[in-house]
Design a protein around this nucleic acid. Structure first.
Lengths: 174, 174
DNA sequence: TTATATAATCAGGTGTACCTGACGATTTAG
DNA sequence: CTAAATCGTCAGGTACACCTGATTATATAA
């Protein structure tokens, strides 16, 4: 099982990678906390980046949490000036949440960070890495779908497209 | 700046990768919570895997937290049966913390998990991935050292060696 | 031997991500 | 038009990773 051995090696390197990411964050002034990017308030910002002006209910469903939690986080985000809440005119029960300009910038900043360590890779390696990540990510989408089709729909492949496309574009420009 | 563009692409794929890891965890029965592997109790287990029988004080320094926090976490780990605490015979003030057999197994289990998604990579890709991760990890060690030499010493490259070597060995056997 | 340092503990936070239950304000369906 | 469904809020809670300050043993140095 040569392949299994290779996988094990890679797995341990990934663990190491995870550990290092963590340490690097603990340390120093990084505000782009990798850990919180995909949880709570960060998760909501990402969802809004993909699809703005959602009701709290829809948002809650989208990111798989209770409406109460969503209300709490949205309120916190509002306090931070990253989202705004306005009553829907068609249905006075619902509240439409949208990113403020600041929120949009903040989210972009957080997802656009190019980790310093990538600079050690040359073009060929970056290319290889991209292909590998593509394969892995694609497989993870499938695994998630396998485990829970509903979840998969919510976090559909398109979720990050908005943000990610922007990154590519911006990068291309520079 | 072709290279910068490549880096941006890779960066976004890494963000996506992180997001997917997170979703996959939320979902389903994974107990090997990637998020907690390097924090709090998990961090301590890792430190002990590398260097067992440390005093609480030494442990606290090693993982960069206050002795009070350490005391709390160690107590929790003891309750879970993963570590044992015994008074040092030479210095009755200090408490020596060590992994129980269960703790050792648990830690190995948590670090040994081979993510399912790796199976989509062929031998060549695994090889490339390994090389890339090696380069990246090495660079991250340097970056951490750069930012804080003390921290670097504590989380020295050797930290995970113990655990990781075991993984390699076990994998080789299978 | 007495003052001081040191390891740990107790007590009491803080912040963040969640959750459940109860309830008020609308909207919609019968 | 009234009852049920729907969206959101309020109140209160849990769990986990931390932290500061004060205090108790024990060890060491003057």
């Amino acid at each position: 099982m040569t392949n299994l051995m290779g996988q094990g090696k890679t797995a341990s390197k990934l663990v190491e990678f995870g550990m290092l990411q963590n340490i690097a964050e603990d340390d120093s002034q990084h505000k782009n906390d990798y850990k919180t990017l995909f949880q709570g308030q960060g998760k909501i910002l990402l969802a809004l980046s993909d699809n703005d002006n959602m009701s709290q209910k829809a948002l809650a469903e989208r990111v798989n949490m209770t409406p109460q939690s969503m209300a709490e986080f949205v309120r916190k985000l509002e306090k931070r000036g990253l989202v705004s809440r306005k009553k829907s005119s068609t249905d006075k029960r619902v509240i439409i949440v949208s990113l403020t300009e600041e929120g949009r910038l903040e989210t972009e900043k957080r997802t656009q960070v190019i980790p310093k360590y990538l600079r050690v890779l040359n073009d060929e390696e970056l290319n290889q890495f991209n292909k590998i990540l593509d394969k892995i990510n694609q497989q993870m989408y499938l695994d998630i779908k396998d485990a829970d089709p509903t979840l998969h729909n919510k976090y559909h492949k398109l979720m990050l497209n908005h943000v990610l496309t922007k990154i590519h574009t911006d990068e291309t420009k520079s």
